[in-house]
């Protein structure tokens, strides 16, 4: 892959673009557009979580929606029970991360192959979907929060300033917060990948046996990466729940998992910018298809997924980067993510 998006200059460029969007979008877009942009950002965070574990950890997770949904439910339950959002946000990250660590221990230390890992993660998401679907009725509650079964949990308290439940954020403030969190997650992952941990993780993706022979324990590194990915997906679930004030079992659905994979595949495996772009593009496309009734959104998503697997398996951002690299000669290669991406 070209170093265009990976070097320090590329990083500065991405963050600058993020800051510009944060400042400019509220000025040019109305409230409706801003609220819609906020859900795009939540999805971009979700895409980053899978982009990280799949693209850099080589972990095939077909059920990333499990952590997304857990984050959303953890936030909703905690926000209702504690009456404020501070603990709720922390729990929305900690619960999915802990769950991912548990599941990851089971899978990585069981040395389950890629394909089975896909099927197991998918099955876990289906289990959670079934369980949450069956919790209708007032006997299913955690504290004061009724789980609501198929109908989900409505009127979840919005996020507020830490320690002051009455100071809920306005849509504009929530948009800015979401953008800041997206940039923070992106920066955090960049730093992580540039660290020793990140380099070992990529080494394991490239050749697990070799990394093991060099004395690294692939199981441990994958486990930590998987837990981090789970936490980020949980954060995204928290943002999503805040956005609509609502969470339902659909968050765990297979369609949701498929969408996350499409985000990453479209944007490009082995990049961090790609999944963000992929999420925004697909979400925008789904919004467009929602306004017409000739074709079902699933039909279009299916065609996109099929087309990309068959024709552009490396994704859009790497494909464009490769084209640009031919025009702009590469001066230096740097960064943990500049290794070539092998097809998983």
């Amino acid at each position: 892959m070209s170093p265009l998006f990976t070097g320090r200059a590329g990083f500065a460029l991405v963050i600058a673009a993020g800051v510009i969007v944060t400042i400019a979008l509220p000025l040019i877009d109305g409230m409706f557009g801003l609220v819609q942009a906020t859900v795009f950002i939540a999805m971009a965070v979700l895409a980053l979580s899978l982009g990280f574990i799949w693209g850099f950890g080589g972990i095939m997770c077909f059920g990333q929606s499990a952590f997304f949904g857990l984050g959303g439910y953890a936030y909703a339950i905690a926000a209702i029970d504690f009456g404020g959002s501070s603990w709720a946000v922390l729990l929305a990250i900690a619960v999915p991360a802990a769950f991912a660590a548990m599941l990851g221990y089971f899978m990585f230390y069981g040395r389950i192959s890629d394909a089975y890992m896909g099927v197991i993660t998918l099955t876990v998401a289906v289990i959670l979907y079934n369980v949450m679907n069956s919790t209708s009725g007032s006997q299913y509650h955690i504290g004061a929060a009724e789980l609501g079964g198929f109908n989900g949990m409505p009127s979840v308290p919005p996020i507020n300033l830490p320690g002051d439940p009455s100071a809920a954020l306005s849509p504009l403030q929530f948009f800015i917060l979401s953008m800041i969190l997206l940039m923070a997650v992106y920066t955090g992952l960049r730093l992580l990948l540039a660290s020793r941990f990140g380099r070992v993780l990529v080494a394991i993706r490239e050749n697990e046996t070799r990394a093991m022979l060099l004395g690294y324990d692939p199981r441990f590194y994958k486990l930590v990466a998987f837990a981090i990915g789970g936490g980020i997906a949980g954060l995204s679930g928290c943002l999503f729940t805040n956005w609509g004030g609502f969470i339902s079992p659909t968050a765990f659905s297979l369609a949701q998992s498929a969408q996350i994979i499409i985000f990453v595949l479209l944007g490009g495996i082995g990049t961090l910018l790609g999944p963000i772009m992929g999420a925004v593009a697909i979400e925008y496309l789904i919004t467009l298809t929602g306004t017409q009734h000739r074709f079902d959104a699933n039909l279009i998503l299916g065609v996109i997924l099929l087309g990309f697997v068959l024709l552009v398996p490396q994704g859009v951002v790497p494909a464009i980067a490769a084209q640009l690299a031919r025009v702009i000669p590469a001066r230096r290669r740097a960064g943990a993510s500049s290794q070539t991406v092998t097809a998983p």
């Binding site: 994979i261 959104a297 699933n298 039909l299 279009i300 299916g302 099929l306």
Partner: peptide, 10 residues
């Protein structure tokens, strides 16, 4: 998986 979405949508 793409095929599955395509079939549901179709």
């Amino acid at each position: 998986w793409g095929l599955s979405l395509f079939m549901i949508g179709g």
